[in-house]
């Protein structure tokens, strides 16, 4: 039981006018010097080289997304001069120029914003769907669980790229608000719609594991509502595995966005995106390989940043791995 859960239990008791002893145990375990899962994890994380590499890269790309003009060395990604077309890297223009003669460094740098935006929005969507559906299925069990589990199986059988591909292809003609606009929002929705299943399974199994615990029974006995039991007493247990999964998934979704955009259904031309740059560059792979190379490298590093942070986090939060 965490400190906050204990506090919640105490306030449930006050409201119900009862005492179970669970809310205020005679032997207060929190008094004896015991580290929480999170402080232990932080000690572990601080010593992990993988975490620091991932975190430094992640912060770098976040800064790139927020303040691209600093990293672009002042160049405007849309100020192009055809006479510079496909020029190779030089001291003034580190990454050379693209087909239209636009400074490539600034184009690659400005691509970070859309990628991170879609990655983060997509994961928020995944978490929203996964936590809500998983919590309901795990908590209510029986028929509700069977139906929701089968629904999850259905989505699970469709590859992420395939489902998102079809949804984004038909999106513009549906006339629905965000999905028909072919912007970052549409891509994030498509990715969340076909990527929430693992989060659901994670949450569901955690909920099933703790819902029959004594402290949940105590909270229920004191008249706490289903919603309160779920949100304050059960779901906090799922935070650790879900956090690990979410961190890695940001990277996975960033890669998926680039793939969908490359396939022509994601972001569209005036937007700046690594997927678009790779798609345009691949036609010139023979003559100007740098046009594919640079967005590819930065895309890979971004994905790697999140996967490394997630990996390190998983190791740190897994007590079995501790010596």
């Amino acid at each position: 039981m965490t400190d906050s859960q204990q506090q919640d239990l105490r306030s449930d008791e006050v409201r119900a006018g009862t005492t179970t002893g669970l809310g205020a145990p005679s032997v207060d375990v929190t008094d004896s010097r015991q580290n929480s899962l999170w402080s232990d994890a932080w000690v572990q994380l601080r010593r992990s080289a993988i975490f620091w590499i991932g975190a430094v890269l992640g912060v770098l790309f976040l800064a790139m997304a927020l303040f691209p003009s600093i990293f672009a060395r002042g160049a405007d990604p849309r100020a192009c001069d055809l006479s510079n077309s496909r020029a190779t890297p030089s001291a003034d223009h580190w990454l050379g120029f693209d087909q239209q003669g636009c400074d490539y460094l600034s184009n690659v740098v400005y691509g970070a914003r859309n990628s991170l935006l879609i990655g983060v929005l997509g994961v928020l969507g995944v978490l929203l769907m996964g936590v809500v559906v998983g919590a309901i299925a795990g908590y209510y069990g029986r028929l509700t669980d069977s139906i929701l589990a089968r629904l999850t199986d259905i989505f699970y059988a469709l590859p992420l790229i395939l489902g998102a591909l079809v949804l984004l292809r038909v999106g513009p003609s549906t006339g629905l608000p965000i999905i028909s606009e072919r912007g970052p929002g549409a891509v994030a929705i498509a990715l969340a719609a076909f990527g929430w299943m693992t989060a659901m399974r994670l949450v569901r199994s955690q909920v099933i594991a703790v819902k029959s615990s004594d402290y949940v029974a105590a909270a229920r006995a004191m008249g706490a509502s289903d919603y309160r039991i779920l949100v304050r007493h059960i779901l906090p247990n799922a935070v650790a595995p879900v956090l690990v999964y979410a961190t890695i998934t940001i990277g996975v979704l960033i890669a998926a966005e680039a793939t969908l955009t490359f396939l022509g259904v994601g972001l569209q031309a005036p937007s700046i995106s690594w997927g678009l740059q790779i798609a345009q560059g691949q036609q010139l792979l023979r003559t100007a390989p740098h046009l594919v190379l640079f967005p590819s490298v930065i895309l890979t590093l971004t994905v790697m940043a999140f996967i490394m942070m997630g990996d390190a986090l998983r190791d740190a939060l897994d007590p079995r791995q501790r010596s």
Partner: peptide, 22 residues
């Protein structure tokens, strides 16, 4: 393995096309 997992399929496809093919 950490590096390989992080490389999106489309990036790996073009890099291998360029290096091993071209």
């Amino acid at each position: 393995t950490t590096v390989i997992v992080s490389i999106p399929i489309l990036v790996l496809a073009f890099i291998s096309q360029y290096v091993f093919g071209l």
